[in-house]
Amino acid sequence: MSDVTVEQVISVIGKSNITKDGSMLSPDKPLSEQGVDSLDISGLLLTLEEDFKIAIPDEDIDALQTINDIVSYMNSKS
């Protein structure tokens, strides 16, 4: 898998059932502080798993607070 980018994660946010416009989200600010709730996160994680064909265990989720966290995590899995 080639390196995952911020733009790719924002694209996944757009595909998920998240009502926020992904392009308006700050990559280094916790998603929870930008109006993304726990259900949105579940939807986002599922789409990430499907699109990038990886499994994200429950114990890893607490570390995925920002878009940058997600990008780093996805790249660490590749």
Partner: peptide, 12 residues
């Protein structure tokens, strides 16, 4: 309930 697991199950 593990909400994420039940959500994933249902959504797929």
């Amino acid at each position: 309930m593990n909400g994420r697991a039940v959500f994933n199950f249902t959504a797929t």
